[in-house]
């Protein structure tokens, strides 16, 4: 190997990594377009997205996740109550807890905790399911039967996520605020009912809208990362395992970063 080759090796490697990253981004973008295309117009080209499959997915990603989402968001609500009471009592501003909890939950925490739970449950299961189908040639089998794999595997998942993640977010909003209410109402000397009413009064539609807007983006991110990782699995059972880990780590990272950017632009 020549000296020049030796010297440019790091640059070479960086270049390859960059090309691979851009290619993957492009693939994810294409996957989004294709999934939406099949969901909207697939029936016209003989590739209909089955309503039954969407419902099945909605159950798996949404309904089945309700208990854990409620539990965790309730806990986060209690935690926020504790922290805000502690922090605000230093200024003698305990009664501001209600609005602090209300805004931070609806804008940030409910949707974030929901996103992370769903990424852990469903992002990984998309990657594992599609990955193992890929390894056992089931994806090829779909294609040769004349079923577009994206239509059959990605579109129902995407539609289900776009419906269920906002629903879960609303539920998480409620659970978090209830959690905070339970902890704070004795300290503030108000009833739980009064706390909730106060919360509703201090919220504007846009607060909840912000969380919901994020939930759509998170839904798309989790699905696309999971599905694309699944489709690109190579290397047998071990590859499937690696893909599952990668899907969870990547989608949670993407989620948190997207959340930060969203908050920045929406609150300027």
């Amino acid at each position: 190997m020549s000296f020049l080759e030796q010297a440019t090796k790091p640059v070479n490697r960086l270049g390859r990594k960059a090309v691979a990253a851009v290619a993957e981004l492009g693939y994810i973008g294409l996957l989004l377009l294709e999934s939406l295309y099949f969901a909207i117009a697939g029936w016209r080209v003989g590739q209909p997205v089955r309503v039954r499959m969407v419902f099945e997915q909605m159950r798996q990603v949404g309904v089945d996740a309700i208990p854990i989402v409620l539990l965790l968001s309730f806990t986060v609500g209690v935690m926020l109550g504790i922290q805000f009471i502690a922090a605000l009592s230093e200024f003698g501003a305990e009664n501001q807890v209600v609005i602090a909890v209300a805004k931070s939950v609806t804008r940030e925490f409910a949707v974030l905790i929901t996103g992370i739970v769903v990424a852990g449950r469903s992002g990984s299961s998309f990657a594992a399911r599609i990955g193992s189908m890929n390894v056992s040639q089931e994806v090829d089998a779909l294609a040769v039967i004349g079923i577009e794999p994206v239509r059959y595997l990605a579109s129902p998942a995407l539609v289900a996520m776009l419906i269920m993640l906002p629903v879960l977010t609303i539920l998480a909003n409620g659970a978090s605020i209830l959690g905070a209410a339970l902890y704070c109402s004795p300290t503030l000397d108000v009833s739980i009912g009064a706390y909730v009413v106060q919360t509703l009064n201090s919220l504007e539609p846009w607060d909840i809208g912000q969380g919901l807007a994020k939930s759509f983006v998170f839904a798309a991110l989790i699905t696309l990362v999971g599905v694309s990782t699944g489709f690109s699995v190579t290397g047998g059972a071990e590859g499937v395992g690696r893909a599952t880990t990668r899907a969870v780590v990547l989608s949670i990272s993407a989620l948190v970063i997207a959340d930060m950017m969203f908050s920045y632009f929406l609150n300027r």
């Binding site: 189908m133 056992s136 040639q137 089931e138 090829d140 089998a141 040769v144």
Partner: peptide
């Protein structure tokens, strides 16, 4: 097509 491992769903 009949695949090597069957590829049954």
């Amino acid at each position: 097509v009949s695949f090597q491992g069957g590829a049954l769903f």
